[in-house]
């Protein structure tokens, strides 16, 4: 087992100095995030049969729900608002459930510890991983959206104004995923907690029926959950044709910005403190 090529001093020197020579810390950090994204995409490709099953399941869930709610028929008037809400669900589901599953798997397999042997903060690496998961969720959402609108003969107009609430909804989901990821490092019961939250979000964010049809106190609870405010903003812009200015004036957009920013900060802090706690106590379980 000869190792002559490895000990080539020129190559060795360049490897040792590589990090210092190639770009600033920001570039290195971006590269690390992209590395994490690429790894997650490789893993998804490796598990492509499971991903395909997720696509099929998600695509089947929406019409089934609408059939149940419509007592055997699909109420077309309800499709655009509920479908728009449902499209956030694959992203939320993939970003949280798969993230927690991946983290627990990595803790047990020791790769989470290897991740900590990097000069980069684990929170940034997690963002890279979440990016891949969000891409997967987005892809499922697009497929469901195209499939459902074509199959049910309804349309959801593409509005440029919907981009901002859409992005804020994604940030909201990322913040929530970071929070859940942080809790996964602390709590053995994270699976149950995640199931409760997923169920609540799915029931109350407008996927089943628009939030405005719930009793007042339920609406208040619903708006504290991730995605609800984003879905409301999206509906107003995309389906009702309201401008972003109007959304800002009526308070929808400021609340959405505050919710997305607040949840992101909380998620970031919880993840970092949980990670430091894990380092004090030992990462491996």
């Amino acid at each position: 087992m000869a190792m002559t090529t490895i000990s080539n001093s020129r190559q060795k020197r360049s490897v040792e100095q590589g990090a210092g020579k190639h770009g600033s810390q920001v570039v290195l950090a971006i590269r690390a995030v992209l590395n994490e994204t690429q790894k997650s995409l490789w893993q998804l490709w490796g598990h492509r049969s499971i991903v395909l099953t997720e696509f099929i399941t998600m695509a089947a869930v929406y019409p089934l729900l609408q059939l149940i709610i419509g007592n055997g028929t699909i109420e077309r008037a309800l499709v655009p608002p509920t479908l728009l809400a449902f499209l956030t669900y694959p992203i939320l589901f993939v970003a949280t459930n798969k993230l927690v599953g991946d983290l627990l798997e990595e803790i047990h397999s020791g790769t989470f510890e290897q991740m900590h042997l990097s000069p980069f903060s684990p929170a940034w690496l997690l963002v890279g991983r979440l990016t891949a998961l969000v891409l997967e969720g987005l892809l499922i959402s697009v497929v469901v959206a195209v499939g459902m609108t074509a199959a049910l003969g309804v349309s959801i107009p593409l509005q440029a104004g919907g981009l901002l609430p859409g992005v804020l909804t994604l940030i909201d989901i990322l913040g929530f995923a970071l929070l859940i990821g942080g809790l996964a490092l602390r709590l053995h019961q994270i699976g149950s907690i995640l199931h409760v939250f997923s169920g609540l979000i799915f029931a109350l964010n407008g996927t089943l029926i628009p939030v405005g049809l719930y009793p007042g106190w339920v609406q208040i609870v619903a708006r504290f959950l991730p995605t609800t405010l984003g879905i409301e903003a999206l509906r107003q812009v995309v389906l009702e044709g309201q401008s972003l200015g109007a959304l800002w004036t009526d308070g929808t957009l400021p609340w959405l910005v505050a919710h997305a920013a607040g949840l992101s900060v909380i998620g970031w802090v919880v993840f970092l403190t949980s990670d430091r706690r894990a380092m004090r106590r030992g990462i491996a379980r």
Binding site: V15, G18, A19, H22, L28, R31, A32, N35, Q38, K39, W42, Q43, G46, H47, S109, G110, T111, E113, Q114, M115, L117, S118, P119, F120, L125, A284
Partner: peptide, 29 residues
């Protein structure tokens, strides 16, 4: 480091992908 009782690498990735990933994780191009 190779730690005890752990896989240390990703089993769903190839050997090549693992080495690329861990190299970049250390900040190398």
């Amino acid at each position: 480091a190779v730690l005890e009782g752990a896989r240390n690498v990703y089993w769903s990735l190839s050997a090549w992908q693992n080495l690329l990933y861990f190299g970049r994780l250390k900040g190398l191009p």
